[in-house]
Structure formats: structure tokens, C-alpha cells
């Protein structure tokens, strides 16, 4: 991975938190750079929330250091963070605009600026009509949107969102995604904590996988997947790929839709070479892609390789999780 071109927005060094003698987070290091979407992944109970609470200074680490914007966390740095916790809720008996103004002012906005921002964001998420309603009178989805607005209306430089899409329907999920990406395009960093690997795969440039508090895998998503490629392609169309010289093994892929096959290539055969040979042999192609393992598959393999993640040094595929996560991307896809 390339060297970081800019200073990280969030930097963790050997962060550890122990509860009742058991490590909830063990020696985790990571860097997230400006304008990056960084995925913090892992199943429930992996230590993601504890890690984020330490970043927000809600919990104190037992060991290690946390820097934000190049210096240890302080009140000013905290104001530049938008945090959406997993355990989230709102004052149920308070009106929507009142609670949003309160939270905005707690983040350091003036009363006038808070009013303006609240109005603007409520219009943006189509909740302006219900601004005078009490939170308890809103649907769960609406409450989720209010939560998201509360996190984003200060236009933070660092967004830390713990399972931000939970409880949102597809339309509102898209709206939430647009809001986050707008901020990322404006230069904000997004640390996305989720246990849904597909979500992270689609959104994040880099990820860190936690299991039982240990970082078991970290790095650029594309590089992680490519480095674990079996040299295979997925193909749909007509023709027999087994007759093409570069094919080593052809396996049908179960599932709905058009029938597809996975073709494992012989060592040294490039996918484009195989495709050209297949077409030359009279084959027709409606779908063709390199077969890369999903993050989910990589995670499962990493957990197994780390001996169920119970050992502190469990790092998959010979890559140091901490070292890989420290590399801040600059222009990588």
C-alpha cells in the first residue's frame, strides 16, 4: 500500500479496553484520512461500539492513544465530529425542531445558526412538516432520519456512524447515503461501523475487521479481495467454457436468474485472454466478471485462520491488520 499523502483525521495506536479482565478491544490501531469512507466491521460483540465510544471519549482506553485531527481529543475536536451511536434515541416528549436545536447548540453552533441549519436539513429529509411534533409521535423511520439529521447538521469533519442504516426503508436508506456522500465529497471523513459486510464492500475504500476485540484483517477493500482471488471468472451466455484451453475447472453457480458458471483459470492465464479465446471458440457472453471473494467470505476465512479470533496475533493472509489499516489512501479506488 502507498504511503499516506496527508495527515490522518483519526488515528488510533494500540488502543485497548478491558472489561472484567476480558479485552473488549485489544491493541487496535488504525488511521482514517480526509474524504475517506472507512469501514469498521465485525459481528455483534466484536468491539466496534466500545472502540467508537473510546474515540468519542465516552469510555477511556486502558492503553494506547487516540488522536483526532492530529492531536489528542479535546472539546474543540469533539465539536468537529458527528457521532451516531448504535444505542441511539431521542427525548420522546420533546418536539423535533427543539431537540435538533438543542443538540446543534451543544455542538457549539449559535442559536441562530442552529435554527437555520435545522430548518434546512428538515426540508432536505422531508421532515419539515413534522418539526413541531413530539418525537414519540413519529414513526420509527422518521425518528431514524431525525437522528441522522442531528448527526449531520453541524456538517462535521468526521462522521462516526454506528449502523446508520438500521431501521431505514430502501428509499430513506438511499437518502441517508446521499447525505453522507455529500459530506464525504465536501472532504469529511466517514467511519462506518457495520456488521453487514455487503454494505461496507459497496461503500468503503478501506476496512478494519474486528473479531472478539482483535483486529484480524485490515486494508484496501479492492486489494484485499484481489489478493484472495483464486484466478477465476464468472461467466453467463452460450458455449462450453470447458473446451477453452485456459479453463482448469468449470462449476455451475446456484441461484436465481440467468445460469452462470464459475471458471477457474489455469495458472498464468489472464481473464481477458480467456475471454478472447472463449469468444473465438464461438461462445456468446451476456455477463463476465472476475471472481473475487466477498468481504464476508474473506472475514470468515480470516476468523478461521486466526483460530476463532481468540489469539491477539490472529491476522489473516500475512498482512498486519494494524499496519494495513494505518496506510491512508490517496487517490486509491
Amino acid at each position: 500500500m502507498s504511503a499516506p499523502p496527508v495527515a490522518p483525521v483519526l488515528s488510533l495506536r494500540g488502543v485497548t479496553k478491558v472489561f472484567d479482565g476480558k479485552p473488549a478491544v485489544a491493541d487496535v490501531s488504525l488511521d482514517a484520512g480526509p474524504g475517506e469512507i472507512f469501514g469498521l466491521l465485525g459481528p455483534n460483540g466484536a468491539g466496534k461500539t466500545t472502540l467508537l465510544r473510546m474515540v468519542m471519549d465516552i469510555l477511556r482506553p486502558d492503553a494506547g492513544a487516540i488522536d483526532l485531527f492530529g492531536r489528542p481529543l479535546d472539546a474543540a475536536a469533539k465539536d468537529r465530529i458527528g457521532y451516531l451511536p448504535e444505542e441511539r434515541g431521542l427525548y420522546q416528549r420533546v418536539r423535533v425542531q427543539e431537540i435538533l436545536r438543542y443538540l446543534a447548540e451543544l455542538k457549539g453552533l449559535s442559536a441562530a445558526e442552529a435554527r437555520t441549519r435545522v430548518d434546512r436539513y428538515l426540508h432536505r429529509v422531508e421532515l419539515h412538516e413534522v418539526r413541531h411534533r413530539k418525537v414519540r409521535d413519529l414513526s420509527k423511520g422518521m425518528q431514524q432520519k431525525v437522528q441522522l439529521v442531528a448527526t449531520l447538521l453541524t456538517e462535521p469533519d468526521l462522521m462516526i456512524l454506528d449502523e446508520p442504516f438500521s431501521g431505514l426503508d430502501p428509499v430513506n436508506r438511499l437518502l441517508a447515503l446521499e447525505l453522507m456522500q455529500e459530506r464525504v465529497r465536501a472532504g469529511s471523513t466517514l467511519v462506518l461501523s457495520t456488521h453487514i459486510m455487503e454494505q461496507a464492500e459497496a461503500l468503503c475504500a478501506r476496512v478494519l475487521l474486528l473479531h472478539h476485540g482483535h483486529a484480524i484483517l485490515a486494508g484496501n477493500v479492492r486489494e484485499l479481495r484481489e489478493s484472495r482471488s483464486e484466478g477465476a471468472v464468472i461467466l453467463a451466455g452460450t458455449g462450453d467454457p470447458a473446451t477453452v484451453p485456459g479453463a482448469a475447472q468449470v462449476t455451475p453457480i446456484e441461484g436465481p436468474g440467468e445460469p452462470r458458471v464459475k471458471v477457474r483459470l489455469q495458472p498464468g492465464v489472464a481473464p481477458d485472454r480467456f475471454l478472447a479465446d472463449f469468444l473465438a471458440a464461438g461462445g456468446r457472453v451476456t455477463h463476465f466478471e472476475r471472481a473475487l471473494p466477498s468481504l464476508n467470505e474473506i472475514f470468515i476465512a480470516a476468523v478461521r485462520a486466526s483460530g476463532n479470533g481468540d489469539s491477539a496475533g490472529g491476522v489473516a493472509a500475512g498482512t498486519s491488520a494494524s499496519a494495513a489499516a494505518r496506510a491512508v489512501p490517496g487517490g486509491e479506488s
Binding site: M56, P85, E87, R88, G89, L90, Y91, L103, L106
Partner: peptide, 14 residues
Amino acid sequence: EEKENRVLEVILCS
């Protein structure tokens, strides 16, 4: 009530 509503963590980030 704040604990029941899970609002505390939101407040504590500020």
C-alpha cells in the same frame, strides 16, 4: 427517562 430512551450517548458526544 434518558436511559430508557437511549439518548444519553447522543448527548455525551457533545
